[in-house]
Design a protein around this nucleic acid. Sequence first.
DNA 1: GGTCAGTCCGTGGTCTGACCAGTATAACTT
DNA 2: AAGTTATACTGGTCAGACCACGGACTGACC
Lengths: 249, 249
Amino acid sequence: MLDIVRSNNDETQSGAARVFTFFRDRLLAGELRAGDRLLPERELALALGVSRPVLREALRSLAMLGLLDIQHGRGAFVRAADASVLGQALTLCLAPEPNILDDVLQARIAIECQAIRLACERASERDLQAIAGTLDTLVDSLDDPERGGPADYAFHSAIVRASNSGSLMKIYEAISPLLMQSHVERRRDTFREPAITTHLVDAHREVFLSLARRDPDAAERRLREHFLIGDDLRRKNLISTYQPKEQHS
Amino acid sequence: MLDIVRSNNDETQSGAARVFTFFRDRLLAGELRAGDRLLPERELALALGVSRPVLREALRSLAMLGLLDIQHGRGAFVRAADASVLGQALTLCLAPEPNILDDVLQARIAIECQAIRLACERASERDLQAIAGTLDTLVDSLDDPERGGPADYAFHSAIVRASNSGSLMKIYEAISPLLMQSHVERRRDTFREPAITTHLVDAHREVFLSLARRDPDAAERRLREHFLIGDDLRRKNLISTYQPKEQHS
DNA sequence: GGTCAGTCCGTGGTCTGACCAGTATAACTT
DNA sequence: AAGTTATACTGGTCAGACCACGGACTGACC
């Protein structure tokens, strides 16, 4: 009756870790699905043959990972796996590295370039229409930097979604918080630069058109150009900002 | 003296969550570095103004995330952020999706294609030599499927490492467990197929040569061909396996 | 009859204090 | 001096109690 946990796991792990892996495996196996409610802590502890503190350590760990939604006075519920956890984990892993904000752009380019190739094969009419829609809002919000940022992200995100690849989408979502961070940092430099906004719409439109024509090579090329030009403009802007003070150091 | 935690965080979060974010932020800020030892639980609980169970819930959560190494009788030590956590998180996020094993290949292609482009710019002589070394072991282990798999992985992994991009490397490490899983699943189909092993070395060599010539477009093209052909061979193999039984269903 | 307030119960949240179990060090014995 | 034991310090576990929040039920009031 007791020891449900112990029977399924190594004897080497202790208490909370056993319970943790127990639930994790149930989640991976699909035996526990989003929305399911767990038994009350007291009953669960009894059923699993551990004390309540130990059980709580495990449940809390699962909650911190975003797998559980524990609500005071209501209970613990299984939560759908969310990319935000991935994002946090990635942030933590990348924290010690230098220049993460710049480097994460490489991951972005990697994901998007593959995504757009896939999208050329797989995108449905609805996907294309969705991308076209983001393009429209992008044009509308040209003069509003507050709306322009999200609009830009929506366009690129829609492309990744059109790839119909879960892996690419999840990874893209995972890096997007870091991407945003790098984006606001960059926008300080390129804020309202006319050369940029002028080019912006054309570049996006070209990317979209190549995708709509289902031409993977062209689409990827356009996308790479778009990234390169953005990078160039930013660099030029940085140089022109620091040039007058160049003699200082 | 007390309430070190409470002062730095929202009042909305409760106990363990506060302590958790407290330590997470210290880790992100670099104030806690790998190898550092935490104070004993009892003192820490006192210093942070929470009870020991609450503190333990937080510490345990950090340990489950791989950020802490808690050793019975010795203490809790800060652990270097490891990509294995990322891998686990990714596995959990992708678990509900169908065909993850196939789909994760798309992420692999994405990372490698961008990595090899970067590597064309950034790879040092040492990087190139390292890749050449994996190529040699790949040739040596052609007839030994047990060594061939790791050798193949070593080659591609070395390319990603040569990109000198922390993001690409971490993400590549994160997907590699899933990749391995999909690899063994696939090897059942392509086991000792002569057409494959013959082609294998040439394809890898071509990839490497393009990289050594610092030609990003060629390198990516070779790599994509390599992936495509691998995919084709596998598909052909599947078809030939199931063709005789095609009439059954 | 409908609406609102109060009460009660079940839930998670927290605490205290104790004891068990490894680890390492210091003291003791040989 | 080397090995062995004793001790203190560490995390691991437990039991029981109490608090705080949410929801449902019940009652009174409109």
